Computed example of a mutant assay.
Amino acid sequence: MADWNTRLEVKLGDRTITPISNFTPTFNVPHTVIHSLEQDGTGYVRQPFTFTFTMTVPAIAQTVADLTELAVNGTEFAISVAEKRGTDWSFKSLKFARCMVTSASPSTVVIDGVPQANFSCTALTVSVED
């Protein structure tokens, strides 16, 4: 059974910008295999990893404007896990830090439901903290 007491949020310092509706990460950890005349696959060279993601956020209030401003100014933000306790949300652990928006694509206006905006981003620091 899913635990619906947590969610991902975009944070700028201590301020929550918006909850995230959909989060799609992409990891790339390239390795180049080293061969020799005597043997194949003698080792490898690990190249720097890249971590990119797309996130969908509700396009309500000033959320999209705030995220667009972060993108234009090159301001870094963080993705954190928020855990609901009582009627408020408290923050349990930070997972993705030094994130930057690389592109944005707002959705069209919808008659029913909340419009969504998609942002492509990259994370410069990925930490695993308990």
Rank of each mutant, 00 (worst) to 15 (best):
Met1His: 06
Met1Val: 07
Asp3Trp: 06
Trp4Asp: 05
Trp4Glu: 06
Trp4Ala: 05
Asn5Ala: 12
Asn5Thr: 12
Thr6Ser: 08
Thr6Val: 06
Thr6Pro: 00
Arg7Glu: 09
Arg7Pro: 02
Leu8Gln: 03
Leu8Asp: 04
Leu8Phe: 04
Glu9Arg: 02
Lys11Phe: 14
Lys11Arg: 11
Leu12Asp: 10
Leu12Met: 10
Gly13Lys: 05
Asp14Tyr: 01
Arg15Cys: 01
Thr16Arg: 07
Ile17His: 01
Ile17Asp: 00
Ile20Glu: 04
Ser21Ala: 07
Ser21Asp: 10
Asn22Thr: 11
Thr24Met: 06
Pro25Ala: 02
Pro25Val: 11
Pro25Thr: 10
Phe27Arg: 12
Asn28Ala: 10
Val29Asp: 13
Pro30Glu: 13
His31Arg: 15
Thr32Val: 14
Val33Gly: 01
Val33Tyr: 04
Ile34His: 08
His35Pro: 13
His35Ala: 09
Leu37Val: 12
Leu37Tyr: 11
Leu37Cys: 06
Gly41Tyr: 06
Gly43Ser: 13
Gly43Ile: 05
Arg46Thr: 14
Gln47Ser: 14
Gln47Thr: 11
Phe49Val: 11
Phe49Asp: 15
Thr50Cys: 10
Thr50Leu: 07
Thr50Ala: 13
Phe51Ala: 08
Phe51His: 15
Thr52Asp: 15
Phe53His: 05
Met55Asp: 09
Met55Cys: 14
Met55Val: 14
Val57Pro: 08
Ala59Leu: 05
Ala59Ile: 00
Ile60Ser: 11
Ile60Tyr: 12
Ile60Phe: 06
Val64Pro: 03
Asp66Gly: 01
Leu67Gly: 03
Leu67Arg: 04
Glu69His: 05
Leu70His: 00
Ala71Pro: 01
Thr75His: 05
Thr75Tyr: 00
Phe77Tyr: 09
Ala78Ser: 14
Ile79Leu: 07
Ser80Phe: 07
Glu83Ser: 09
Glu83Phe: 05
Arg85Pro: 00
Arg85Gln: 11
Gly86Trp: 01
Gly86Phe: 00
Gly86His: 02
Asp88Thr: 13
Trp89Arg: 04
Ser90Glu: 15
Ser90Tyr: 13
Phe91Ile: 02
Phe91Thr: 08
Lys92Phe: 03
Lys95Trp: 07
Phe96Glu: 00
Phe96Trp: 10
Phe96Tyr: 07
Cys99Ser: 02
Cys99His: 04
Met100Asp: 02
Met100Gln: 13
Met100Lys: 14
Val101Ile: 14
Ser103Lys: 03
Ala104Val: 09
Ser105Trp: 04
Pro106Trp: 00
Val110Gly: 07
Val110Trp: 03
Val110Met: 03
Ile111Asn: 12
Ile111Lys: 06
Ile111Tyr: 04
Ile111Ser: 06
Gly113Arg: 03
Val114Gly: 02
Pro115Arg: 12
Gln116Met: 08
Gln116Asp: 05
Asn118Asp: 14
Ser120Gly: 01
Ser120Arg: 02
Thr122Ile: 13
Thr122Leu: 01
Leu124Tyr: 15
Thr125Asp: 14
Thr125Cys: 09
Val126Gln: 05
Ser127Pro: 00
Val128Tyr: 09
Glu129Ser: 15
